[in-house]
């Protein structure tokens, strides 16, 4: 049984398509997580990921994949571009989707990062609770998970896509920069800002010591 991507690719090129299953099993959920951040629809995202896998398969069999680059990085680049293409196709049907064009000029000091977050119903409650520090609150892991989920769901795609590439796809700053064609500084800045804002939100609700007691 092949163990490395190199061996798997050789197997596929020799005609053993079942070897492709190993690549699929390893990368499907990670690719899906990234696509979901762009398309935000399970069915559309699955179709898009299937399309990306087909492109990867054709690239391998037609010897278009240059083995100088990492297979996963190459694949995530396909996944991202396919999702963006599908997003653009669907955009004509759904005008309400927020643009995913990468532009930092609209975001200052991370304030707009959470604009939508505070507007959501659940988060209004959290926002109001911030002023209600007199009530004795206990550390609640599931509540923190809920806060993080809401935060991630409401930040602009410019941030959530980069966070997914960094945390789920395990891409380095350089790799993200090359896939998104963005300066490395911008990538680092967005990860830092997104995380700093989340930390700020959580620390308004719980004290650092309180969280650390349960970590």
């Amino acid at each position: 049984m092949p163990v490395s991507y190199r061996e798997i690719i050789d197997e596929i090129r020799r005609g053993d398509t079942s070897a492709f299953r190993i690549i699929s099993d390893e990368l499907k959920d990670k690719a899906f997580s990234l696509t979901m951040k762009i398309l935000k629809n399970k069915e559309e995202a699955e179709d898009s990921v299937q399309e990306a896998f087909m492109k990867l398969f054709k690239a391998i069999t037609a010897n278009q994949f240059e083995e100088r680059s990492k297979l996963s990085t190459y694949f995530y680049s396909i996944v991202y571009n396919t999702a963006v293409d599908n997003y653009k196709k669907l955009k004509t049907q759904r005008f309400s989707i927020v643009s995913i064009d990468v532009d930092d000029s609209n975001f200052e000091e991370g304030d707009d990062l959470v604009k939508k977050y505070y507007e959501s119903d659940i988060d209004k409650k959290i926002y109001e609770e911030r002023h209600d520090m007199g009530i004795d609150k206990k550390f609640n892991d599931s509540e923190i998970r809920e806060i993080v989920k809401n935060y991630i769901d409401h930040i602009p795609e410019q941030y959530s896509v980069i966070l997914t590439m960094f945390y789920i796809n395990d891409l380095s700053h350089e790799e993200i920069s090359s896939v998104l064609k963005l300066p490395i500084g911008t990538v680092k800045n967005r990860i830092f800002r997104a995380k700093a804002k989340l930390k700020e939100i959580i620390l308004k609700k719980y004290s650092e010591e309180e969280i650390l007691q349960y970590v």
Binding site: K42, V148, K149, I152
Partner: peptide, 22 residues
Amino acid sequence: LDGKIRQTLQSNVSDDFTFELM
């Protein structure tokens, strides 16, 4: 927070995904 972000960002495909792909 890294752990929580990772948990939140993770999504899983449906069970028949690989079957359909193959």
